[in-house]
Structure formats: C-alpha cells, structure tokens
Simulated assay, not measured.
Amino acid sequence: MRIGEAAQRTGTTARLLRYYEQQGLILPGRSENGYREYDENALGRIVQIRDLLQAGLPTRLIRQVLPCISTPHSSIRFSGLTLEMVALLEAERVRLTARIDCLTRNRDEIANYLAALRENTDV
C-alpha cells in the first residue's frame, strides 16, 4: 500500500512516515515509479514507533530499541543488546517515572482545585 493508506491505517500522517524513514526507524519498499510501499509488517512497526513516541521515548532511543522488539506488543529478543543500551533504557525509565510523578501531582492539584470550585459555586 502507498503512504497515504499506510498513514490512515496507522493513525499518523504521511509527513510523519517520511520523518520515521529519515530517522532510520522504518525502511519502506519502493515501487518501480519510486513510490513508497508499505506492507502489513511495516504497519505494525509504525504503530510501535508511534506508541513509543507517545510514551515519551526519543527517536534516538527508539532506533536502538526497535531491533530488539520482534513484533508489536509481543516478545522481546535480546540479540544485539549492549550494556550501553541497558543503561540508556534505565535512564529513560527514570526520566519517564519522574515525568509521570510530576503529571500525577499536577492532575491531583487540578482535581483539588475543581472540587473546591464546585463546593463554592454552582458549576
């Protein structure tokens, strides 16, 4: 399938698919006329990339992790795993945990503020 259909089926945009390619995250095939061609495996990989980006992982880290993930939401292969990659992933996990803690505090404060508003107004 061509880029427009791949974008639609994965909930992304053609521009993002070209960006993923530029970053070395995906490598679509090419038709005789040079159009990008995506198969079902590529669609799964695109969804993985989108999910990892939404989780807050930077593309530089995703590029390193993708070869260790065999298919979307399934088992992880450990071939090619290095101590450096483990350290990078651990640092990213710590960073994400801190971010989650901050977001949780902010959400709770907003909830408290809304509760106080409702107690004191007719909202």
Score class of each variant (00 low, 15 high):
21 E>S: 02
27 L>R: 11
120 N>T: 13
79 S>H: 09
122 D>C: 11
68 C>W: 04
55 A>Q: 08
2 R>V: 03
117 L>A: 08
50 R>F: 02
80 G>E: 01
57 L>R: 01
115 A>K: 15
64 Q>H: 09
59 T>K: 01
103 L>Q: 12
72 P>G: 08
111 A>T: 11
51 D>L: 12
109 E>I: 12
22 Q>N: 02
111 A>I: 09
43 L>Y: 04
18 R>Q: 02
59 T>G: 00
61 L>P: 08
75 S>H: 08
17 L>Q: 00
72 P>N: 04
107 R>G: 05
76 I>G: 02
51 D>I: 06
15 R>F: 05
38 Y>M: 05
35 Y>H: 11
99 R>H: 15
59 T>L: 03
58 P>C: 10
50 R>I: 11
12 T>D: 03
51 D>W: 01
113 Y>D: 13
39 D>C: 11
38 Y>V: 03
59 T>E: 04
75 S>T: 08
5 E>K: 14
33 N>V: 14
30 R>V: 03
46 I>P: 00
28 P>W: 04
103 L>N: 04
110 I>C: 07
35 Y>C: 07
11 G>R: 01
32 E>G: 15
81 L>S: 06
5 E>A: 12
33 N>P: 10
87 A>F: 04
114 L>Y: 09
4 G>Y: 01
71 T>G: 04
45 R>A: 09
47 V>F: 02
58 P>M: 13
95 R>N: 07
59 T>Y: 01
46 I>M: 01
30 R>I: 00
20 Y>F: 02
116 A>D: 12
54 Q>T: 08
100 I>A: 15
30 R>E: 01
27 L>A: 13
1 M>Q: 02
99 R>F: 13
71 T>A: 13
28 P>G: 11
101 D>K: 13
29 G>N: 09
119 E>M: 15
114 L>G: 00
81 L>V: 15
28 P>D: 09
83 L>Y: 10
57 L>P: 02
73 H>S: 14
52 L>E: 11
62 I>H: 03
88 L>H: 03
1 M>R: 07
82 T>C: 04
95 R>P: 05
1 M>N: 09
10 T>Y: 04
44 G>N: 10
27 L>H: 08
32 E>D: 15
53 L>Y: 06
66 L>W: 01
120 N>R: 14
77 R>E: 14
61 L>I: 07
89 L>I: 07
8 Q>Y: 12
73 H>M: 12
19 Y>F: 05
28 P>V: 09
101 D>Q: 14
41 N>H: 10
80 G>A: 02
44 G>Q: 03
